[in-house]
């Protein structure tokens, strides 16, 4: 029994460190992109279009992962794309988290009409395919980095609100809350000092998941041509371009796809790893 749990914890630990390592590399790439990127991510050269990556015949020195149909360097675009991806992940993730968790906490602890109103909104949101919702919002508010972040916040707050509401409701029924009330704490005080710390592990896990989701949403919007602009290097935009030329130049799709895949996987594994850390039973 003990051995089994030890193995599970070791495996969880390895996953946690691998994801942290990948995300650390991404942060490094995002910060240092202008200095480490071998080429200008926007520079086009039609004579150097669809160059293969470095190990294949016909490659050009300096273009390590090949070029897209406009002759732009894939590696440089991935490195610069990390900036946009991480900004979206961190900003959209945390704002969504703040809004959703606050509403969920209020609905779950205050109950009454606050809960009725918030829950009704959650129901309405749940009846709407999120991808369609985000495309609709971007069509309305126009493309751009700020729009994408706003759209993610507007759509995904329910992910936090639903879960936090349920947890806050469960915590609110516990004896320690009753005794805090007897001790004369106010409702806001109980919410922030008693309930929030107990819901925090869940919120942190959801936050890491949301960061991964935000990156995907940006990619999806780029894919339907509604993201930042077609020139700016985004992973989603690269994937969209790669999809159309996948039979001629697979590398234009593969490299940004692998990057996106590992990033999303790392965010969620980070969340899983943190959950194990927070779980008092396992700790």
């Amino acid at each position: 029994m003990l051995d089994g749990r030890g193995a599970v914890r070791r495996r969880a630990g390895v996953r946690l460190w691998l994801s942290a390592l990948w995300l650390g590399l991404l942060v490094g790439a995002a910060l240092l992109a202008p200095w480490i990127a071998p080429k200008d991510p926007l520079a086009q050269d039609l004579f150097l279009g669809r160059l293969p990556p470095f190990w294949m015949a016909g490659h050009e020195p300096g273009y390590h992962l090949g070029t897209d149909s406009l002759g732009r360097d894939v590696l440089s675009r991935i490195l610069h794309g990390a900036r946009i991806a991480l900004v979206v992940a961190v900003v959209a993730g945390s704002v969504t988290c703040l809004l959703g968790a606050a509403l969920g906490l209020m609905a779950g602890y205050l109950r009454g009409w606050v809960d009725v109103v918030i829950s009704r909104f959650i129901d309405i949101w749940m009846a709407f395919p999120p991808v369609l919702f985000s495309i609709l919002l971007i069509a309305v508010i126009g493309p751009g980095l700020g729009s994408i972040i706003l759209a993610i916040v507007i759509i995904d707050w329910t992910r936090f609100a639903r879960v936090v509401r349920a947890e806050a409701m469960a915590q609110g029924a516990m004896d320690y809350v009753a005794s805090a009330r007897v001790a004369g704490r106010g409702r806001i005080g109980i919410m922030l000092r008693e309930i929030l710390p107990n819901v925090m592990p869940t919120i942190v896990v959801l936050l890491t998941l949301e960061m991964g989701i935000a990156v995907i949403v940006e990619a999806i919007l780029s894919f339907v041509n509604l993201s930042i602009s077609t020139d700016d290097p985004t992973w989603g935009g690269m994937i969209a371009e790669g999809r159309t030329s996948v039979h001629q130049a697979w590398w234009v799709l593969v490299f940004p796809l692998v990057t996106l895949f590992l990033t999303v996987l790392s965010f969620s594994q980070l969340g899983e790893g943190l959950k194990d850390r927070f779980d008092p039973v396992l700790r």
Binding site: I216, I220, L257, F261, V264, S268
Partner: peptide, 12 residues
């Protein structure tokens, strides 16, 4: 951990 959109691309 990986959403349907990425699986679609991988399958393609």
């Amino acid at each position: 951990s990986v959403p349907d959109f990425l699986w679609g691309l991988v399958l393609i």
